[in-house]
C-alpha cells in the first residue's frame, strides 16, 4: 500500500495523508517540481490537469486547469510559499476564473508537503492539506473527483429511484 496513514481533522478541515514510495527522495521530489509529471497525477484520467504556468521559485506562481469529459474547464492557481528541496514544500492554492485569473474573492487553501528518506531507496511523503471552508472543499472535490466514481454513484441513485 502506498498510503500508510490518513488523518482527518474536522475542526481544522485538514487532511494529512502519509505515503511511502519505493523510490529515492530526489525522484519523489520531481513529482512536484516537474509540471509534466505533476499533471499526470494531479487530475484523474477523466479530468486531466494542464499546468500552463509554472514558476517553481519562492513566491512564484503556477496556473492550471482541469478539463472535463465534455471539454469543460476548471481553473486554479498555486503560489509557492516555501521550497526546501528535496525535503519540504508549501503551496497556497485557490480557484481561478474562466480566464485563469485568480479568484481572490474565494478563500485559498494550503498544502504542506514533507519528504523524508527512509533508507534502502524508500521515501515517505506527508501531505497536509488545509481548507478554510466546507464550500471550498466541496468545490475541490467537484474538480478532482474521478468521473467513474461519480457515474457509479449516479447509477446507484438511478437504481434506487426505480
Amino acid at each position: 500500500m502506498t498510503v500508510v496513514s490518513s488523518v482527518k481533522d474536522l475542526e481544522a478541515l485538514t487532511l494529512t495523508i502519509v505515503n511511502e514510495f519505493d523510490a529515492g527522495v530526489d525522484r519523489v521530489w520531481q513529482l512536484w517540481e516537474d509540471p509534466r509529471q505533476l499533471e499526470r497525477w494531479w487530475g484523474p484520467p477523466t479530468w486531466p490537469a494542464t499546468f500552463t504556468d509554472f514558476d517553481f521559485t519562492v513566491g512564484g506562481e503556477a496556473r492550471y486547469h482541469m478539463t472535463g469529459p465534455e471539454g469543460e474547464k476548471a481553473h486554479g492557481w498555486w503560489r509557492f510559499l516555501a521550497i526546501g528541496r528535496p525535503a519540504s514544500l508549501e503551496i497556497e492554492d485557490g480557484f481561478a476564473d474562466a480566464n485563469g485569473e485568480p479568484d481572490l474573492s474565494q478563500p485559498s487553501g494550503r498544502m504542506r508537503v514533507s519528504v523524508e528518506d527512509l533508507g534502502g531507496g524508500r521515501t515517505r511523503m506527508t501531505i497536509a492539506s488545509h481548507n478554510d471552508t466546507v464550500e471550498q472543499l466541496q468545490e475541490l472535490i467537484e474538480m478532482g473527483m474521478e468521473e467513474g466514481m461519480k457515474e457509479a454513484l449516479g447509477q446507484i441513485d438511478a437504481m434506487l429511484a426505480e
Binding site: 514510495f21 519523489v28 494531479w42 478532482g144 474521478e146
Partner: peptide, 26 residues
C-alpha cells in the same frame, strides 16, 4: 458538521487516487 465530514471523506478518496497515480509514475 455532517457536510464537513462527508467532504473530508471524499477529499481523502481523491488524495488516495493521487497516491496511486504517483506510485505508478515512480
Amino acid at each position: 458538521l455532517a457536510l464537513a465530514r462527508q467532504a473530508l471523506d471524499r477529499y481523502e478518496e481523491i488524495w488516495r487516487e493521487r497516491s496511486l497515480r504517483m506510485d505508478r509514475i515512480l
